[in-house]
C-alpha cells in the first residue's frame, strides 16, 4: 500500500504558524504509525518567508506556499483558490483544516470545489481496523458523537477546532519547500471586495491558551459577582471563560471567551465553573480539562456529572473566599 498523503492548512498569525498547525501535525503523525505518512503543510499568505522556514523544521515532510498580496487579509475566494491549487498539486488523501472562524468557511468551500466530503468540527481522527480514515464529529451539541467516513472521494476533508488536540513537538525531518507561482490569483475573478478590518481590543490571556479557566455562568446572577470571577482568574494567572447565557446577560462583552460548541474549546490544567449549569453545548467545549471544579446551587446541575470536584452552594461566595485567601498569601 502506498503511503498516505496528509495535507494540513497551516494558518498564520503575525507571520508565524498558528498553534493549530502543530496540533494537527502531531495528530496526523499518529494516524498511520506503521506506514510513514507524507505530511505537507499548506501556507497561504503575504510575505510568508519566515513562516515557510518555520514550517520546514516543524516535522512536516513537505511545505507548500502561495505568497501573494491578495492573501494579506482573509478573503474566502483567494484563500480557497490558493488551497485548492496546493491540494491539486500535492493530491492528498486527507486534508486537515483548523475550524477557526476562517477555516470553518474554507473547509466546506473546498469540499465543493474539490467535489468531496467534509467532516465538520471533528473531536477525534482515527484509522479503523480496515485502514479506513474515520472522523468523529459531534452532533446535538456534543451529546452524541457520530462516525463519519468519506469512502469514495479524495481528499477526505476534516475540520478540527483549535485546541482539540495537544501540541507534541516533532523532530524536524528532511523537508522540501515548494513555492507555487501565484499568478492564478491575479487572474481570479471575485465578486467579493475586502473593505477593512476592525480588531477587538486584546483582553489578556486567550481563554484557549490559559492554564486556568474560571468560567462564570448564568448562576453568577449579577455584574458585581462577575467581577469576582474576573478577580479570581487574574489572581490565578488564568483567563475568564463564559457560557452563552453569561454573554446574553452582558456580563462579558462578545463571544471571545465563550466556551462550547459554538465558542472556544479549552483544555486547561484547571477549569473552575461557577454558576454554570452544564448545557451540553458548554460541556463539549471544556470536558477535556485536566481538573474540573464546579460550584452550583443546584445539586442536580448537569455539570457535576463531568466534574472532579463539586461544591453545592453559592459560586460567588466561594470564589470571593478563594480570592481573599490568594490575596492574603501574596
Amino acid at each position: 500500500m502506498e503511503n498516505k498523503k496528509i495535507l494540513i492548512y497551516a494558518e498564520l498569525k503575525g507571520g508565524s504558524l498558528e498553534t493549530s498547525a502543530y496540533e494537527l501535525l502531531a495528530k496526523a503523525r499518529t494516524l498511520f504509525p506503521a506506514a510513514d505518512a507524507a505530511i505537507a503543510l499548506a501556507i497561504a499568505g503575504c510575505g510568508i518567508d519566515e513562516a515557510l522556514k518555520e514550517a520546514a523544521v516543524s516535522g512536516a515532510d513537505l511545505v507548500y506556499g502561495v505568497d501573494s498580496p491578495r492573501l494579506e487579509l482573509y478573503h474566502v475566494d483567494y484563500h480557497a483558490e490558493a488551497l485548492k491549487k496546493i491540494a491539486e498539486t500535492f493530491h492528498p488523501d486527507i486534508f486537515l483544516i483548523p475550524a477557526s472562524c476562517t477555516g470553518e468557511e474554507l473547509a466546506p468551500t473546498l469540499g465543493l470545489k474539490l467535489r468531496t466530503g467534509v467532516a465538520a468540527h471533528c473531536v477525534d481522527l482515527q484509522v479503523d481496523q480496515n485502514g479506513e480514515f474515520l472522523q468523529m464529529v459531534p452532533a446535538f451539541g456534543g451529546k452524541v458523537i457520530g462516525e463519519i467516513y468519506t469512502p469514495k472521494t479524495k481528499p477526505q476533508i476534516a475540520s478540527i477546532k483549535p485546541g482539540m488536540f495537544s501540541v507534541i513537538r516533532q523532530q524536524p525531518r528532511s523537508c522540501k519547500t515548494v513555492l507555487l507561482d501565484d499568478s492564478f490569483l491575479e487572474e481570479l475573478k471575485t465578486k467579493i471586495k475586502l473593505r477593512g478590518i476592525e480588531k477587538d481590543e486584546p483582553s489578556g490571556v486567550p481563554v484557549e491558551q490559559a492554564d486556568v479557566v474560571v468560567c462564570g455562568g448564568f448562576g453568577i446572577e449579577t455584574a458585581d459577582n462577575w467581577k469576582q470571577v474576573e478577580r479570581l482568574a487574574s489572581l490565578l494567572g488564568g483567563a475568564v471563560g463564559s457560557t452563552r447565557p453569561a454573554v446574553d446577560q452582558g456580563w462579558v462583552s462578545g463571544e471571545q471567551q465563550m466556551i462550547g460548541t459554538s465558542g472556544k474549546t479549552v483544555r486547561p490544567k484547571v477549569y473552575i465553573g461557577a454558576g454554570v449549569s452544564g448545557a451540553t453545548h458548554h460541556i463539549c467545549g471544556m470536558k477535556d480539562s485536566n481538573v474540573i471544579i464546579s460550584i452550583n446551587t443546584d445539586k442536580d446541575a448537569e455539570i457535576f456529572a463531568v466534574s472532579d470536584y463539586k461544591i453545592v452552594g453559592d459560586g460567588a461566595a466561594v470564589i470571593k473566599a478563594l480570592c481573599e485567601l490568594l490575596e492574603r498569601r501574596q
Binding site: K143, I145, K310, G313
Partner: peptide, 29 residues
C-alpha cells in the same frame, strides 16, 4: 452524499465529582 455515517456513540464524560463541603473559607483552602 460523499460523507457516510458510521455508528453513533454517546461519549462517557463522567468523573467522580467529589463533594467539597464546609464554610466558603474552608472550601477555598
Amino acid at each position: 452524499s460523499p460523507t457516510q455515517p458510521g455508528q453513533l456513540l454517546t461519549p462517557d464524560m463522567s468523573r467522580n465529582a467529589k463533594l467539597l463541603q464546609g464554610e466558603p473559607a474552608e472550601i477555598a483552602a
